Amino acid sequence: MGVLSQCRSIHVGRDHDHLKWSKKLAPVLTVSSGDVVTFDTVDSSNDQITLDSDASTIRSLDLGLANPVFGPVFVRDACPGDVLKVEVLDLEVADWGWTAIIPGFGLLADEFPDPDLKIWQLDKGNGYARLNGAVRVPLRPFLGCMGLAPATEEDLSTIPPTNAGGNLDCCELSVGSTVFLPVQTHGALFSCGDGHAAQGHGEVCGTAIETSVKATLRFELCKDQPWVTSPHFQIPPASQLGVTILPDRGRYAATGIDPDLLEAARKAVRNTIQWLVVAKGLTRNEAYMLASVAGDLQIVQAVNMPNFEVAMSLPLGVFSL
């Protein structure tokens, strides 16, 4: 455990990865409130998918190695009941990323049993990635995983999120955002990973545009914030996000209505895929992937019982005229 001075820029490398949340993990460094830390992360496949991979790679993917996070970082004076404020200062993505349909994974896993893989070239100069000649997705990088060690003695998988954070997969947490995490154990023990170049709300096929990311984060220890018992976040005005804005042509949305909220979401995605196939000429797999990386699921209403209403919308600016 290193002893580091306040407000110094510090680095966590790719060799400090782990595949569980645990308060028993030895921290790789110690920081103070106000320090800035950079993290070099690898993609969620843990480098099992490369530029030369195809769908056959998905069949041999070892999911036991998936979703590595990097750290943990010990925060001086952090105690259970405190809050760790994490400011996202910078996110540098690689030149390429991937989106996959993984058998048994995703919101419509039963309807997409066969693996597929899309390798994206990330045009960082222009700020987008192309699905094909007619569809482009604006880049908006974020870390899928930011979290703290849990209070439990049990080691937890990095796949499901917890009240201490983890695999939140929240596409709002891009540069300029701030995340508030409730400290569960002495020193907080922060880790992060699972870089994404773009994702919609829902990540419905199970993957975003997965990529390695170099992240720069600032930590601040906060006291007396009892309302933070799960991850909270704050995002800046859209004008300060610094992301590529495609032409604003409005949005198209398909709804799903059902007494079961999950099934309503499935119906919304299913109806969106059908629209993309028939009206936009995409294959079903392309449509499912596009819904995952650019579509947004939203609960439209949750009070007109017995039916919930969920919508999935896509910005029409992703399509060429």
Rank of each mutant, 00 (worst) to 15 (best):
L139E: 03
F142P: 05
T152H: 03
L143V: 05
V137F: 01
R136C: 07
L139T: 02
P161Y: 12
P161W: 12
L156C: 14
D169S: 08
A197W: 11
L189A: 06
G127D: 06
A164M: 15
P182Q: 08
L143K: 06
A164S: 14
A197P: 05
P138R: 02
I159R: 12
S174H: 10
A129T: 09
A197S: 14
L173Y: 04
N167R: 05
P160T: 10
R130L: 04
D123T: 06
C192H: 11
T158G: 14
T152W: 11
L168C: 06
C145D: 07
N126C: 09
V175Q: 14
V183K: 15
F142L: 05
H196P: 04
L131W: 06
M146H: 02
Y128D: 03
A164G: 06
T162G: 15
V135G: 10
V137A: 04
G125W: 12
S174C: 07
L189C: 15
T178F: 06
H196M: 08
R136K: 14
I159H: 10
N126W: 03
E172R: 08
H186S: 11
C192D: 11
S157W: 08
H196I: 10
L156Y: 10
V137I: 15
P182L: 10
C171M: 13
L148D: 01
D169R: 13
H196L: 09
F180S: 03
P150R: 01
T152M: 06
D194P: 04
P182N: 09
T162H: 13
S191F: 01
G165W: 00
F190K: 07
D194V: 14
A134H: 15
F142V: 05
G165P: 07
S177P: 02
A164V: 13
S177H: 01
A151K: 05
N163Q: 08
